[in-house]
């Protein structure tokens, strides 16, 4: 099952995530699973591909909020950087950042799915 230990290994700031959940581990883990299943990373990719930077910003901003609240640092960091670039519409390496977000989301999904398989 998805454990705090696994999240920690993944790179999550588990302590601050738990603080937001009143130290309720079960609740925290449940929210992480809920989050990872709900992430619409594909929509972000789509928007970037189509050059719809406003839409991309919205999607990134959404991801950032949830990742931040759950202290999912490996996703939060690239998505924050991407959000800032998109907010100002500064040209930048969107692709690399997006790839990192996609990768880290997949990793987390795998951890959650692993949990679901058992």
């Amino acid at each position: 099952m998805l454990t705090l230990e696994k999240l920690r290994e993944y790179g999550t700031d588990v302590e601050s995530g738990l603080t937001r959940c009143m130290q309720n581990e079960t609740f925290y883990l449940r929210l992480v699973v809920m989050a990872v299943n709900g992430f619409s990373v594909a929509a972000l990719g789509e928007a970037l591909k189509e050059g719809d930077l406003d839409k991309a910003f919205e999607e990134a901003h959404k991801l950032k909020g949830v990742a931040g609240n759950l202290s999912l640092t490996p996703i939060y960091e690239p998505v924050s950087a991407l959000t800032e670039l998109l907010r100002r519409k500064t040209p930048g390496d969107y692709e690399t950042l997006y790839a990192e977000i996609l990768q880290k989301t997949k990793e987390l999904s795998a951890l959650a799915a692993q949990d679901a398989d058992r």
Partner: peptide, 13 residues
């Protein structure tokens, strides 16, 4: 708030 995770965290708080 449209994000369920954020809703849940705020409700908990």
């Amino acid at each position: 708030e449209d994000e369920v995770v954020n809703q849940e965290l705020m409700k908990l708080a």
